[in-house]
Design a protein around this nucleic acid. Structure first.
Length: 586
RNA sequence: GCCCUUGUAGCUCAGUGGAUAGAGCAGUAGUUUCCGAAACUAAAGGUCGGCAGUUCAAGUCUGCCCAAGGGCACCA
């Protein structure tokens, strides 16, 4: 009697969507997905059967508009020309050769100029969600880095003063990048490169000495070129409290420099710790100035090696890296006429050390003010035969802060720079971290301090954390009222009961998490994660708003609790990478 | 003068050569006898800085111009 009808459980997303007038159009937070691995071999094999031989890359993307399917490929458009075929006709032929596993694809169609659009079955989506529940905390982890090591260098501020807000952005960015890379199986070293021996440190010591002498009652003249910040007085006071005026006649800077360095470094580490930023390794630039067993410094070895390759010349009393031979306008000084290396030389040596330590991936995170620094280093490394393809550079643009709608410009010198500690005091660690990475690193960040302090939906930190807390509350309530705990149940098959658009949309988004991370890793861009998590939170709230969960009939209730649990898992895993706390209640 | 980044809705920003350019906030109109309304829904809001070019297809790639931020030291 009903023999002509397909079973309802096989109903396609498109059919379901057609029955609702809801427009579901979440942010296009991704294009390629982990489903790439599902589609790619099928399409490749279809192209082979169709006799299409192309070197064009097969792109599987999620159309911005769901009416064009869950996934889509433009391969017919790309290859039509070389096949001398009409793209739509070609698309139809390719479709004829596509073979998918049963119960996965509900509909395939040719649309537009020759796109092939795929619609997944709800069954496929909901079945796949079991993986989220099964993998738990490891859901989303990748394996490409297994057995490989990576080094991420970030912060790297010399201990001349407290960390500024600008440094904070780089610090958080670096930390998130390290987390991202680690999530793909790499063994990651987080390194901080610093120099406590240069001219700036001398000036620091001198600045402290003068302030100290001032405290001892001496009349001093404090030069403009010295560090003006209030913290110099604080350090001087600490020394004074410890030694009294005993060092008042001491013109030797070293004591002051050493004390200042110790105090400042410890304060920097303290500030970083407040943001959960930790380093495994501190690399002192000065080791490159220290002769090795053969009595030669790393710096000297760099000069010698470059000279052997014909890229060194001595003139005007200095030693130059002949970057004009590489098409640049000017040569660059490696050793000043004073005999001291310029910063470029140890930078090259430092990077050689990263190669010598055999890192498969070398990531440098630094601010836009160092933008001119790395090309010379890369060129030098190339000349010396290193595989510079392993080096990835992440440069973050600067931060301006907005308070009460007024934009404050960052000024690093003269002691009026915004201090990172003050910001954390003001808005808290979670908001500080999230705000630093919620914009693309290439984008000049406008940090709205008032917004970050708001405990309301306008504040994206709270929007994300609220979704997590809400799920926790829901699960607590469910356990209390019904005794059901989805975390300790294996009845995941019940998920297949869920077929409504908002449930499927949410489930679909959760499945995309692993590839979202891969995209973030590839681009060294944690901002993608924030965008994605916002979308997950939004889809959850919509789902939550639309359906009763605890009050639904028992099997449906269980299914929805599984979905909620999977959502919480994805949010939690994402929060871990971003270094933002996942509160159980707020 | 040269180099890097940015320019997309009133504001803050997504947008990986594809289909009618999207969010959040603000503003407008709604949604609570019901699991957390810190939420949700809807309508509205655009010469994608400008001009050329490449492409079947350009916010996206190329060139030039304009504007903002940063960098152009024998400072780091």
């Amino acid at each position: 009697m009903l023999s002509g009808l397909s079973p309802i459980s096989e109903s396609s997303l498109s059919m379901i969507f057609a029955g609702y007038s809801i427009r579901i159009n979440p942010r296009p937070y991704y294009k390629r997905t982990n489903m790439h691995e599902f589609f790619l071999p099928v399409i490749q094999s279809a192209l082979r059967s169709a006799g299409i031989d192309t070197d064009k890359q097969i792109i599987i993307e999620q159309p911005a508009d769901k009416k064009f399917g869950d996934f889509s490929t433009n391969i017919a458009l790309l290859t039509a020309k070389e096949c001398r075929r009409n793209p739509r006709e070609l698309a139809h032929e390719i479709i004829g050769h596509l073979v998918f596993p049963p119960d996965t694809i509900a509909k395939i169609e040719v649309a537009g100029l020759g796109f092939i659009n795929f619609y997944l079955t709800s069954l496929f989506i909901m079945r796949s969600l079991r993986q989220v529940l099964r993998d738990g905390d490891t859901y989303g982890k990748g394996t490409v880095g297994k057995g490989k090591t990576a080094i991420v260098e970030y912060v790297s501020a010399n201990p001349t003063g407290p960390l500024t807000i600008g440094r904070g952005r780089g610090g958080v960015l670096g930390d998130c990048i390290a987390n991202l890379i680690e999530s793909q199986g790499y063994e990651v070293t987080r390194e901080y490169y610093f120099n406590d021996a240069g001219r700036q440190m001398q000036i620091l010591g001198e600045s402290v000495r003068l302030r100290y002498q001032e405290l001892c009652g001496k009349t001093i003249e404090f030069p403009d070129t010295h560090y003006q910040g209030e913290y110099i007085r604080d350090i001087a006071e600490q020394i004074y409290n410890e030694h009294g005026a005993a060092l008042a006649e001491n013109d030797e800077v070293l004591t002051f420099k050493n004390s200042a360095e110790a105090i400042i470094f410890s304060s920097i580490k303290k500030t970083l710790a407040r943001l959960s930023i930790r380093h495994d390794s501190f690399f002192n630039e000065h080791t490159l100035y220290t002769p090795d067993a053969a009595g030669i410094t790393a710096n000297q070895r760099v000069i010698d090696a470059l000279r052997e390759n014909g890229f060194i010349a001595d003139y005007d009393g200095a030693t130059w890296f002949l970057t004009t031979k590489l098409g640049q306008e000017k040569d660059k000084v490696l050793v000043k006429s004073s005999g001291e290396p310029s910063y470029r030389l140890p930078d090259i040596g430092y990077h050689i050390s990263k190669f010598e330590r055999k890192y498969a991936m070398i990531v440098n995170v630094f601010g836009a003010d160092h933008i001119d620094e790395y090309p010379d280093v890369i060129e030098a490394l190339k000349i010396l035969g290193y595989d510079t393809g392993r080096i990835k550079i992440a440069i973050n643009q600067f931060v301006t802060t907005t308070v009460d709608g007024q934009t404050l410009k960052m000024s690093t010198r003269k002691g009026n720079a915004d201090l990172l500690d003050d910001l954390i005091d003001d808005v808290g660690a979670d908001a500080t971290r999230l705000f630093f990475i919620m914009r693309s690193k290439d984008s000049h960040l406008n940090f709205d301090v008032e917004l970050a302090k708001k405990q309301s939906k306008e504040n994206p930190v709270f929007y994300l954390q609220y979704a997590h807390a809400r799920i926790c509350s829901l699960l607590r309530m469910a356990l209390q009222e019904t005794g059901f705990d989805p975390a300790s149940s294996e009845d995941h098959k019940l998920l297949e009961l869920l077929t409504s658009p908002s449930e499927l949309q949410l489930g679909f988004a959760l499945l995309d998490y692993p590839d979202m991370i891969k995209t973030s890793v590839r681009l060294l861009e944690p901002q993608k994660m924030v965008e994605y998590m916002h979308s997950v939170a939004e889809l959850f709230h919509r789902f939550y708003q639309e359906f009763p969960i605890i009050k639904a009939e028992p099997d449906t209730m269980k299914a929805r609790l599984f979905l909620a649990l999977a959502t919480r898992q994805v949010l939690r895993n994402g929060f871990r990478i971003l270094g933002v706390s996942a509160p159980e209640s707020m």
